[in-house]
């Protein structure tokens, strides 16, 4: 099957007074039609940046894509004009955000915000767009959509706002949804509802979803495959069951160990020693080596590439064969 989105060897750097921070260091990622792919990693590992690069929304003055390609529907995205990107955003590729509280314009009614996008991308008349907006609100299970379109964002709860944003993101027929920690700011019950809704709606429309999160439980619930990022690299990628149950990369293992376990609530939570390296002077070789227990000479010198461990399961680690 042809991937919908294919990122290969993507390098992104940020220029600042001290030099170039290499925030994405050769990302390879494929997303197939209708698939849910989880992208996990700690803060600053480059998850959101990857999503922004796909949408062409990297800060123009400081970010530099030095290498790599992003193919969407078989066409290269890097180097497209702002105008071309505007035609893609919201129409073919959409995004939902971490904080639904702030993602709607406080000065306009919900209906108006939805109608504008529909008019922009689908060229609907005002009346058609209004009907479409109501239909989409029903689709995301909002009670009383006729009333909600006349309300301002402050009148809605966080969960409702996230539903509205999801409706907005999907209303113009996007094939790819970039969900940047869509449930982090919501409480647990609402989280589950929103995830279920996302899954249901995306499955129904055949939309592919790139779910960015640092919550492994969310990944386990919703995704078919998961990619683990560390410091601008993908260190492990594979089917969720494989990666979560038989992790191969020391970082993935450490992450899983750091999860609270309800069966052993007395034991202290494990943490990964050390901290995320400074990206201006990243460690040579494997970027995880200063924090890794299994470190050996090769790790400090050469960057490991993703290699197959089992079907569809890849890991970038020199010591991978030693602990499978």
């Amino acid at each position: 099957m042809e991937p919908l989105l294919k990122i290969s060897d993507l390098h992104v750097g940020f220029l600042n007074y001290a030099g170039v921070a290499r925030v994405l260091n050769g990302i390879d990622l494929e997303l197939f039609p209708g698939e849910f792919l989880g992208l996990v990693g700690e803060s600053g590992s480059g998850k959101s940046l990857t999503a922004n690069a796909v949408l062409g929304l990297l800060p123009a003055r400081s970010a530099v894509i030095s290498k790599g390609s992003i193919m969407f529907e078989g066409k290269e995205l890097i180097g497209r004009s702002e105008k071309e990107f505007q035609g893609l955003r919201g129409k073919k590729i959409s995004m939902v955000f971490q904080e639904p509280m702030n993602a709607l314009n406080p000065s306009y009614k919900i209906g108006k915000q939805m109608v504008e996008i529909l008019k922009l991308h689908k060229g609907l008349s005002n009346k058609e767009a209004k009907a479409e907006a109501v239909r989409w609100l029903t689709q995301v299970h909002i009670q009383n959509p006729e009333k909600v379109v006349k309300e301002y964002p402050y009148e809605l709860s966080g969960g409702m706002r996230q539903r509205v944003l999801l409706a907005m993101a999907l209303s113009c027929g996007s094939q790819l949804l970039l969900a940047d920690e869509p449930t982090t700011a919501l409480d647990v019950t609402i989280q589950a509802q929103i995830l279920r809704l996302m899954k249901e709606t995306a499955d129904q429309l055949g939309t592919s979803v790139l779910l960015i999160t640092h919550d492994l439980a969310v990944v386990a619930q919703t995704c078919q495959r998961v990619a683990v990022m560390y410091c601008g690299n993908i260190v492990e990628i594979g089917p969720v069951t494989k990666v979560l149950h038989e992790p191969c990369h020391p970082y993935t293992k450490a992450l899983l160990k750091a999860l609270p376990n309800p069966d052993h609530s007395e034991t202290e939570l494990q943490s990964i020693p050390g901290s995320v390296p400074n990206l201006l002077t990243p460690p040579a070789g494997c970027r995880f080596h200063p924090r890794c227990d299994l470190v050996e000479k090769t790790c400090m010198e050469l960057r490991p590439q993703l290699t197959t461990v089992s079907e569809n399961h890849y890991v970038a680690c020199w010591r991978e064969e030693d602990h499978v």
């Binding site: 949408l55 929304l57 505007q86 893609l88 919201g90 129409k91 702030n102 993602a103 709607l104 922009l120």
Partner: peptide
């Protein structure tokens, strides 16, 4: 603010972002 970023991801042109 997030809603301006959100508007960009929905493909809003710059003129819209300024005016609305």
């Amino acid at each position: 603010r997030q809603f301006v970023k959100a508007a960009q991801t929905f493909g809003a042109p710059k003129v819209w972002i300024i005016s609305r």
